[in-house]
Every structure is written in structure tokens, then in C-alpha cells.
């Protein structure tokens, strides 16, 4: 059999395997990098304000994405509960994006404004104070951790370097903006902004 030829030549086999494995990715991924739908911000989407950016990083660090997705799929059962479905253009400033693939808790893509700041704070301090059957961990200690202004400034500079439209003034004033702001405050600011660009459905 001719497959013998391929199997006996490690180099040929390697080339063919690489070709077979990569072509799908090439065809699916590379064009997306040039798609305006995926690269340009959707209506109402702006870069994260410094406080919200700090909150986003708390969200990533604490692994909230292990239990919460941030992608409303285009099904009625989802849009009824969470709001309009997510589009690619809404996540252009998410590095990395927080789509997630597990929903132990609800999707958070449009949680902004659904609850009050006070609710979010109490809920993060002790979820069971508000939802007795909740399995979400407590994050009370975020209250005692201040946001690091230097780290935040460095992050903003990096994002600006990568092409996010932060202005120099925004970066210069970021450190002062987060003075006295705890990681809890920043996380709440982040949550309260999620998905607020598209609320209207009816």
C-alpha cells in the first residue's frame, strides 16, 4: 500500500500532518483578523475607563470566567433573560476576551445596571446574604486591597502601544483617578458597565 511511503518517511509525514492540521485554522482565523465586524468597535463601545480596566483585571485574576460567561448567544431563551445577543464588535477592547464556556452562575455580558452598586458590593462580600442558595465564593477581601496606580498606568501605556485609543491625558490622570479606590470598587465599576451599550430590545 502506498500509505507505507508516507509512514516510512518521518519528514513527509510531518509536512502532511502540519498541512492537514493548519489549513482549517488558516482559512477560519486569518480572514477574521481583517474583518471589520470583528475588529472595529460596535456602536457605543469605548475603551475601558482606567477604573473599569483595573476592575476587569481583578475579574480575570480571580477567575470569575470559570463560572461566568460573557456571551449572550442568539437564542430567544438567552436574549429574554440577559438582553440582546453579543456581537464580535463589542469585545474588541477585551484582551483577552471573557466569552467563557462555563455557566455555573449566570452570563454577565449585560449585567451592567441590572443591580445597584450596593447590591453588587453586598453580593461580592457575601453572595448568600442576597441569594441564600448561591454557590459563589465570597470576595470580601477585595475591599481591603487598593488598586495599584503604577501598574494601571503601565497597563494603559501597553494598551495604547497595542493600538487602543487611550489619550495621553487619560493615561496621565489615571493614577490620580484610582487614588483610594479599592479592587472591590473597581470590580463593581467594571460590572456596572458590562453590556450597557445595547439594552433596548423592545
Amino acid at each position: 500500500m502506498r500509505h507505507d511511503t508516507i509512514e516510512r518517511s518521518v519528514n513527509l509525514m510531518m509536512v502532511l500532518i502540519i498541512l492537514a492540521v493548519s489549513i482549517g485554522g488558516l482559512v477560519e482565523l486569518i480572514p477574521l483578523m481583517y474583518s471589520s465586524e470583528a475588529n472595529e468597535p460596535a456602536e457605543g463601545i469605548e475603551v475601558y475607563s482606567p477604573i473599569r480596566l483595573a476592575g476587569r483585571d481583578v475579574y480575570v485574576r480571580e477567575g470569575c470566567y470559570n463560572c461566568h460567561s460573557q456571551m449572550v448567544r442568539p437564542f430567544r431563551s438567552e436574549t429574554e433573560r440577559y438582553g440582546p445577543y453579543t456581537t464580535a464588535g463589542e469585545t474588541v477592547y477585551d484582551r483577552p476576551f471573557q466569552f467563557g464556556s462555563k455557566r455555573t452562575g449566570p452570563d454577565l455580558a449585560r449585567v451592567g445596571g441590572r443591580y445597584s452598586d450596593a447590591w453588587q458590593r453586598l453580593h461580592l462580600q457575601n453572595p448568600r446574604a442576597l441569594v441564600p442558595e448561591s454557590t459563589m465564593p465570597t470576595y470580601a477581601w477585595l475591599e481591603d486591597r487598593p488598586v495599584d496606580p503604577e501598574l494601571l498606568t503601565a497597563k494603559l501605556e501597553t494598551l495604547q502601544f497595542l493600538g487602543d485609543p487611550y489619550t495621553d491625558e487619560q493615561i496621565a490622570s489615571a493614577a490620580a483617578e484610582v487614588e483610594g479606590v479599592s479592587e472591590m470598587d473597581a470590580l463593581i465599576a467594571y460590572l456596572q458597565g458590562l453590556g450597557t451599550n445595547r439594552r433596548n430590545r423592545r
Partner: peptide, 14 residues
């Protein structure tokens, strides 16, 4: 005190 009842009109409709 600042009690906030969030708006639900967008989700519910009239």
C-alpha cells in the same frame, strides 16, 4: 441611604 431599584423596562416591555 441610596436605595436603587433598577429599571426593567428594556427587558420586560410595556
Amino acid at each position: 441611604r441610596n436605595g436603587v431599584m433598577p429599571a426593567h423596562g428594556d427587558l420586560l416591555g410595556t
